[in-house]
């Protein structure tokens, strides 16, 4: 039983990281109608920034994370401006998709050049040891607890921002109808930039948590969590913020429990099989809305 609890909590923690990454995917998809496959690599860049701040420059974890958030935000806005914006309205959404894959490889190779392929040993940004329950039978690491709390905070702040602020409402308007939104006086390009900024800033936070739990940092660190988070976003219903959260948590728990009870090697296969099954039954994901094609 305690064993199950340990794996469940670890799964929730891993799922929280997926959820934070998935939020970035889902917001960008909802507003810019594109899948940003370079999103996972932004996590990796963020992690290297934190690593550089903490190890090379000897910074405290908090300013190092802030540095990474600012760095990734700028990276997100810049990529959108340089690589994606010129293709918007070019007719084919495939062009942007392929460009995003190109950006992904570019970021990976840029990191290879700067940081080499040698794995860096990441120092946890959470100094806290964690708690020990049931007379030491159940140990929960500090980073596990912090990860879950941070993801819930992120979700709460995002929900407030989207539903209660003028800019957030503008985002919903842009995600529904760019033309009508611009007739309201909403600057659509700036709203899309803001979305990329938020998604990339979240990616930096996800990077800090991911590398604190799994301290092996390479230029490919972001790739797999990026794909998993994409799966989480689709599972929850892409475009939906609560959907990304639920999808992420579900994915993390399934992955963790199947590692424990079924097979370590097969856990990823199980995760993707579940995606396929869910999509067969509910093509729009768990919380996804009916897709409306607008001309």
């Amino acid at each position: 039983m305690l064993n199950f609890l340990t794996y469940l909590i670890n799964g929730l923690s891993l799922g929280s990281i997926y959820a934070i990454i998935a939020l970035g995917y889902t917001m960008v998809y909802g507003i810019a109608k594109m899948l940003n496959f370079a999103h996972g690599d932004v996590i990796m860049i963020g992690s290297y920034l934190i690593y550089t701040g903490m190890i090379t420059w000897g910074m405290h974890p908090v300013p190092a994370i802030l540095l990474a958030v600012v760095g990734c935000t700028i990276l997100g806005i810049t990529t959108e401006k340089i690589a994606y914006k010129p293709l918007r309205g070019a007719g084919s959404s495939l062009a942007v998709l392929i460009t995003a894959i190109g950006v992904s490889y570019f970021l990976q190779n840029l990191s290879l050049l700067i940081f080499t392929a040698n794995p860096k040993s990441f120092t946890s940004v959470v100094g806290w040891e964690g708690v020990s329950l049931f007379g030491g039978e159940l140990k929960i690491q500090g980073v596990t607890i912090v990860t879950i709390i941070v993801s819930l905070l992120v979700l709460a702040v995002l929900q407030f921002f989207i539903n209660r602020t003028k800019q957030g409402q503008a985002m919903i308007a842009v995600s529904e109808d760019k033309g009508a939104a611009s007739l309201m006086g909403i600057n659509v390009n700036r709203t899309i930039s803001l979305t990329f900024a938020i998604g990339s800033g979240l990616a930096a936070i996800a990077g800090a948590l991911l590398c604190s739990a799994y301290p092996n940092l390479t230029p490919y660190t972001g790739a797999m969590p990026g794909i998993k988070a994409f799966v989480a976003a689709v599972l929850g219903g892409i475009g939906s913020i609560p959907g990304a959260m639920i999808g992420g948590l579900l994915l993390g728990v399934i992955e963790s429990l199947s590692k424990r009870y079924i097979s370590t090697q097969l856990s990823d296969a199980i995760v993707f099989s579940i995606l396929i099954i869910v999509l067969l039954i509910r093509p729009t994901g768990l919380l996804g809305k009916k897709i409306q094609e607008k001309v």
Partner: peptide, 15 residues
């Protein structure tokens, strides 16, 4: 904006 309420739509008009 179908996913916004009537009031939220009106407020969008005064953006």
């Amino acid at each position: 904006f179908a996913n916004l309420t009537v009031l939220q739509n009106l407020k969008m008009g005064a953006f």
